[in-house]
Simulated scan of single mutants.
Amino acid sequence: MKSLYQNLNRAIEFLLILIFSLLVLDVLWQVFGRYVLNQSFSFTEEFARFALIWLTILGAAYLNGRREHLSMDYWLNKLSPADRAKRLKLIELLMFVFAFIVMVIGGGNLVYTTLRLGQLSAAMNVPLGFVYAIVPVSGLLIMFFSIYNYRRHEY
């Protein structure tokens, strides 16, 4: 399970770097087009918005897996090691349930509905279901990471 965790983290890191690089190139192209060519390209703003959606949601799953997301752990650090492990297991369970209900089920319904209705983005004509597909994918990743982190905590 540890090798799967490490390989998954490397793949997500690569994907995040790729998305961020494309986002930077897109914004540079947008600025170049507006100020040098005096022409605005309609797809650049929309692509930047979609890339930022993917970057933040996938980045949240990545940080969750590495246990580097923002947390207030002052009281947690005051607990004994056994109580801290119990509390961390409870947190992982709650994260698993949240990811399953909100991101996998809710996000899956969002993807299904937008694909079923045939909603397309205005400038790029991309089905919005593909843009929103990162929500259930990240939910599945968070669920996997929660299971992995749950098994790491010892009493």
Score class of each variant (00 low, 15 high):
M103Y: 03
Q30T: 01
P127G: 09
I57M: 13
D83G: 06
L63C: 15
M124Y: 01
A48M: 10
L128C: 03
S21K: 01
I134E: 11
V97Y: 02
N77G: 09
T113F: 11
K86S: 06
I101Y: 03
L63R: 08
L55R: 01
A48G: 15
N125S: 11
N9R: 08
V135C: 01
F145H: 06
I147P: 01
Y5R: 06
L88R: 14
L90F: 05
L120F: 00
M1W: 11
V27W: 00
S138F: 07
S71W: 00
G107N: 10
L117G: 08
Y62L: 03
V111K: 07
S80C: 12
L70T: 09
K2W: 08
T56C: 14
R49M: 14
M124K: 02
G139E: 05
F41S: 13
T56F: 13
V24H: 01
P136I: 00
W29A: 13
G118R: 07
Q6K: 14
V36F: 04
V137W: 01
Y155H: 07
A61M: 12
R66V: 02
V97S: 08
Y155W: 05
D73C: 04
R151K: 10
L90N: 03
L16W: 07
R67C: 12
R87G: 08
Y150F: 15
Q39D: 10
I147V: 08
N9P: 04
G59K: 07
E154D: 07
L4N: 12
L63N: 14
P127H: 06
N149G: 08
T113C: 00
E68K: 14
N125C: 00
D83H: 12
R67D: 15
L120W: 00
I91L: 14
R151P: 02
N109F: 14
W54I: 07
W75Q: 14
T44Y: 01
I19W: 05
S40Y: 00
L63A: 15
E45N: 11
R116W: 05
Y35L: 12
G65C: 06
S42E: 03
Y35C: 07
G106N: 02
K89T: 05
K2T: 13
A123K: 08
P127C: 10
F32Y: 11
Y35F: 15
L28D: 01
R34A: 05
G139Y: 02
S71C: 09
V36T: 04
I134Q: 10
V24F: 07
L94G: 13
Y62I: 02
I12S: 08
P81S: 13
G139R: 02
D26V: 12
P127R: 06
W29S: 11
G33K: 04
L23N: 10
